[in-house]
């Protein structure tokens, strides 16, 4: 197989995985949450049914307009595109076309689309949700960026696929902890699901959205779980991989990586099920402290630790 064929095949595999395996991940998480609750819970295929139902419904938006129209698909597309830069046990299909900064821009753009979608409506709840989303962006997302920077500094490069773990470093242990906590916030899980906060803001920025638009927002979050989970494993946690570039070895790595992401999502959902929601000011303070810790990680990496 020539290199182009490999990239195309990988791209197709990535597309299929990110689009169609991410709801499954959500389904598993809901099931685990139900078990913690002593509930039976919905079948793990429920997120597919949810998406299918929303996608065929009428798209009712309180205040239609270009932002309301395009923000949901844009948020969706940004996360989908960002996946192509993230290694998944194998190097990413677009791994050499963009570095971690492209990834960060795409993810931030997606969050900004959510904010814009909330601000485009006139409900006070969606405005409050968007302003909270903004505060989460400049704190939690900053932690993610800084901990990724630490990896880049330590690995002397910015291409995510080239930064896969190699040996233990103190700086990456610090980065790992910061990333894991901030990821909880980016995925909209407790104790940090503050912008959506069902019991306070009735889903915040999403309150006025329904049908396909809402489906795209939900799907965006499902995909984020897969993308951020995979990034975590490839950048901070190492495990023995098949080497040599054979197709079987690649598929094996791919499968092991997916399994690892499922395991990680169990950790995410267990934290989610055992914590109440923090207030935005408490959360901002928490991540403010974490930014300092993550910056310390970058310093360690620069010193070669």
């Amino acid at each position: 197989m020539n290199a182009t064929t490999v990239v195309v095949l990988k791209a197709v595999a990535y597309l299929a995985l990110v689009l169609f395996a991410s709801p499954l991940l959500e389904g598993v998480m809901r099931k685990v949450k139900a078990i913690v609750h002593s509930r039976k819970g919905p079948p793990i295929t429920q997120p597919y049914l949810d998406l299918a139902k929303l996608l065929v419904k009428e798209d009712v938006v309180s205040e239609p307009g270009p932002v309301a129209r395009f923000a949901p698909p844009a948020a969706f597309a940004c996360v989908l595109a960002s996946a192509f830069f993230v290694p998944f046990g194998v190097s990413a299909p677009a791994g050499s076309a963009g570095d971690l900064f492209v990834f960060v821009y795409l993810v931030t753009l997606s969050t900004s689309c959510v904010m814009a979608a909330g601000l485009a409506q006139s409900s006070p709840f969606s405005h409050l949700g968007s302003s909270r989303e903004m505060m989460m962006l400049i704190t939690a997302e900053a932690v993610i960026v800084i901990s990724l920077l630490g990896v880049a500094v330590g690995g002397h490069g910015a291409l995510l696929s080239a930064l896969a773990v190699s040996g233990f470093r103190w700086s990456s242990l610090v980065g790992l902890c910061c990333y894991l906590l901030a990821m909880q916030a980016l995925l909209g899980k407790l104790p940090f699901d503050i912008p959506e906060a069902e019991q306070e803001l009735m889903e915040g920025p999403f309150i006025e959205y329904s049908g396909p638009s809402l489906a795209l927002f939900k799907w965006t979050f499902y995909m984020k779980q897969l993308v951020f989970g995979s990034l975590f494993f490839n950048l901070f946690v190492g495990w023995p991989r098949a080497t040599g570039g054979s197709v079987v070895g690649g598929l094996l790595n791919f499968a092991v990586n997916f399994f690892a992401v499922v395991v990680l999502s169990l950790v995410v959902v267990l934290i989610d099920a055992t914590n109440p929601r923090l207030r935005i000011d408490q959360s901002v303070r928490f991540f403010g402290g974490l930014i300092a810790v993550a910056a310390l990680g970058v310093g360690l990496a620069a010193l070669g630790w």
């Binding site: 949450k33 913690v36 609750h37 002593s38 509930r39 699901d193 019991q199 109440p276 929601r277």
Partner: peptide, 16 residues
């Protein structure tokens, strides 16, 4: 009270 704070585990367990 648990539910209000998003802590549904408390809700489910106390109602059980």
């Amino acid at each position: 009270a648990g539910h209000i704070l998003g802590f549904d585990t408390v809700l489910m367990q106390t109602w059980r």
